[in-house]
Design a protein around this nucleic acid. Sequence first.
DNA 1: CACCGCTTCCAAAACGATTTGGAAGCGTCG
DNA 2: CGACGCTTCCAAATCGTTTTGGAAGCGGTG
Lengths: 338, 338
Amino acid sequence: MAGAVTIKDIARRVGRSVTTVSRALHGYSDVAPETRELVQRVAQEMGYTPNVMAQRLQKQRAETLGLILPTFGPRFSDPFFSEFVAGVGNQAAERGYDLLLSTRAPGEEEMAAYRRAALGRRVDGFIIIRTRARDERIHFLRQLGFPFVAFGRTAETDDFPYVDEDGEAGMRQIAHHLADLGHRRIGYLSPPLDLMFAQYRLEGLRRGLAERGLTLDETYLRIGALTEQSGYALALELLSRSEPPTALACGNDLLAIGAVRAAQERGLKIGSEIAISGFDDIPLAQHTFPPLTTVHQPIYQIGKRVAAMLIDLVEGRPLAQRQVLLEPEFVVRQSTLP
Amino acid sequence: MAGAVTIKDIARRVGRSVTTVSRALHGYSDVAPETRELVQRVAQEMGYTPNVMAQRLQKQRAETLGLILPTFGPRFSDPFFSEFVAGVGNQAAERGYDLLLSTRAPGEEEMAAYRRAALGRRVDGFIIIRTRARDERIHFLRQLGFPFVAFGRTAETDDFPYVDEDGEAGMRQIAHHLADLGHRRIGYLSPPLDLMFAQYRLEGLRRGLAERGLTLDETYLRIGALTEQSGYALALELLSRSEPPTALACGNDLLAIGAVRAAQERGLKIGSEIAISGFDDIPLAQHTFPPLTTVHQPIYQIGKRVAAMLIDLVEGRPLAQRQVLLEPEFVVRQSTLP
DNA sequence: CACCGCTTCCAAAACGATTTGGAAGCGTCG
DNA sequence: CGACGCTTCCAAATCGTTTTGGAAGCGGTG
């Protein structure tokens, strides 16, 4: 690590003040063209790169977006997160922002992480992901007046900027699809209901079935975790009933992948003997056998959009649209087709 | 955003200098016990949180680790990365470091990102992942003398700190396993060979077969991308030959998952009619049907370890072990068993 | 000549912390 | 009483930048 070149070194070399050098580098009009060129040439020659920390201290801006992923345990395999992170990260980089990433299980430690990052002005704003019915993160940031944009809504208030997909609409389409294929015994594997998106999706299923004159048999409703593991176990449970469901809707793709394995293990032909659907359209959904009927969410794009909104917010630009609800796209593949 | 409490505010309130406040907060011995308590109490009351940017400028340390994921295109679904990132992130958080994450496709822009972050002293060190045979990142950081730790080795030099799994040993075991099961026509789907790990694994396969008196038929060797897509396409290709392979080893799990789908589509019973193996043991590997025989890498743990080494390096602590080669664990599941 | 306006420059303050190099006050000892 | 040592404190410098509020010099004008 060679001693880094500072603005002072340049000033000394060109025989001007640091003020002038700084202004020359930023193209201010009160420096003579020859001086500007000289300064810029010398800066280039000396390999000058501004010290970001100093810039940030002076500007009182971290130029950093915070993203704390709510994950349990060390295994962190949700492809949903990876894609979202990529979207956020790339948008941030494009606008000159850093992305500060960590993972924390929901709870006290999580809140401590938010507090530290916000109060220590380590980030300019947060991105909240996987909102909960009663979301303390949103609570905290709202009362602090700290900038944030959420991916998802919450049950408590509507007064904050967010992007969300209309999960209810998506799941209604699945309900219609299954009902129209003639299914009457329809099971549903739901993620935990304190997650907002799980509520919307369940509600969508109920409404969609109702619109076809059906009701969800509550004994076919199972609530599990957000893992294939859980999907596998719950599906086995339902499939071993005396009157097993002929269709199995799942609250996300990971659950569906587990359900697919369970059905395969029981020797069921997926599509004809049992229909299985997912939700999210993670990359893997096209690569199960058979490929998964699901609802597509442009997760990468949502990540970019959320980041863009947050940056606008942080920089004091007015938001074109403070709350965005995206219409999801229903994707029929073989896992529900005879 | 209320005006944040600074050390100066505390000083004013307790009627001491900022020096004393700073020293009191850090528990220096040259401040009277009563003063220390007073200061700490007042700091607490006023809700003081140190301004990290100022601390970092003064300490000349970013307290931040850089990790640039080499990904192509917007879809970034590699579960391998997610888990690694979680390991790095959590270790960093534990030691009070931030993780600066971005994604960049290998090439000029990638190198520019390294340059900017390093020269702007935006990070204290880098973690290099997915090393390449000729790795310009390692080149650059080495000649700059900038701290870094790699996950993986490179063909050019051995003189840098790294952690790697012994991919050759792992793949040798797979070769033995398949040979011992009686397979003679063994296909291999390899990731691109400019990736170091792909070279080791291919080499391991060759050596393992040789140790059983077999040689790899080069016409059964296919090189593809790191995706299920690619595994699917290449497997179909091999399976449609007049003499298809009876076993298909794959250079990573994603390729294997694609191969599984291809085999299922052709109506082959996996395990008995065709054996398929992966490498990495990503979480999904246990949830394919049938579950995948593979080689386990403790990716999360490796992430933690690499981060810990980098932090030691950055803080000038001597490394207990500068180069670590981990013995991988062979995991037999049903995808290779009759 | 006195004044004005324009161009070009810069000293100093500021951002919020840490560190350096004393200084003041007080008791003790020879 | 003077010297010394100990405890407790602090002014000022520093980290590397940006910004503020002029100042100097010069030519043109009334």
